[in-house]
């Protein structure tokens, strides 16, 4: 009743893809024979070197600032663009397709590539990292929010047209209240992702705790690495809590 003969092909294909992917990634659980090496390595991480805590906190603050600025600017720019990239609010098919293509374009470029390009002009430091996060997230938030707009109830928009409001204003005023809680949760998710991204950008000289982590790693300063990782985990969890708090207040 539920399983049709035809779907056997799908299962065979799925199994094939799994097999090929495992081959390509050298996926082999027997490699865990050397598990002890990892335990041994991790044991060098402790005890944590708390004397570095003030400097680590300062760098974390820089990371938070990078992630916040980058993601906030991307929301600021992505939100208006998303209205142009949604079928039900786009002024013309041309604008719609142009915005869609533009958003996919910036989204398809990873932050680290933006970072590497911007480094050549702006030099090392957190500023190019902020811009890299911003560009990529404009693409991501623009797409996500445009999909929220497309899924919104058209009724209120029609009502706002019927009272004689300008059409751009009718769309904005009727759709924004509907999607606002979801916009916020998308935003906070991207903020959280941006924190992790800014770590990677730290590896290429973007500053913040990412750069510290990278340097500590490269200089075999493992007792500092463990504290870096702990602080990063705490930051991500705090941002997550803060995000759900704000979202609950808004709903």
């Amino acid at each position: 009743m539920w399983f049709k003969k035809r779907s056997i092909i799908s299962y065979v294909l799925l199994a094939l893809f799994l097999y090929i992917s495992m081959k390509l990634t050298e996926f082999d659980l027997s490699k865990f024979r050397d598990f002890r090496n990892m335990i041994d390595f991790l044991s060098h991480w402790f005890p944590m070197d708390f004397s570095l805590l003030p400097r680590i906190l300062k760098d974390s603050l820089e990371t938070l600032a990078m992630a916040f600025l980058g993601s906030f600017f991307s929301l600021l720019i992505g939100l208006p663009l998303s209205f142009l990239a949604a079928k039900n609010t786009a002024r013309s098919p041309f604008v719609y397709h142009l915005t869609r293509v533009g958003l996919s374009f910036v989204r398809s470029i990873p932050e680290i590539v933006f970072g590497l390009i911007l480094l050549t002009a702006l030099g090392l430091g957190p500023f190019p990292a902020v811009l890299a996060i911003m560009f990529h997230n404009i693409g991501v938030l623009g797409k996500l929010i445009s999909e929220l707009i497309e899924a919104s109830d058209p009724g209120p928009q029609e009502a706002m047209k019927a009272v004689g409001a300008k059409s751009w204003f009718a769309s904005l005023f009727s759709i924004l209240p509907q999607i606002w809680p979801n916009v916020l949760s998308n935003y906070f998710y991207r903020f959280e992702v941006a924190i992790r991204t800014s770590l990677i950008l730290g590896f290429i000289g973007g500053g913040g705790i990412g750069q510290r982590l990278f340097n500590d790693f490269k200089t075999f300063h493992y007792t500092a690495v463990s504290l870096d990782v702990l602080v990063i985990m705490i930051i991500v969890i705090l941002v997550d809590f803060f995000g759900s708090y704000v979202r609950n207040r808004v709903i």
């Binding site: 009724g155 706002m160 009272v163 409001a165 005023f173 009727s174 509907q178």
Partner: peptide
């Protein structure tokens, strides 16, 4: 349009706004 009021089957109120805020939208035109 602003001289023609319209009411709908599904009311088409703007969600998450109050009664007063929704009524005020009648002046938007």
């Amino acid at each position: 349009r602003r001289e023609m009021g319209m009411i709908f089957q599904h009311f088409n109120l703007v969600p998450r706004l109050t009664v007063l805020q929704n009524v005020l939208t009648g002046m938007f035109g």
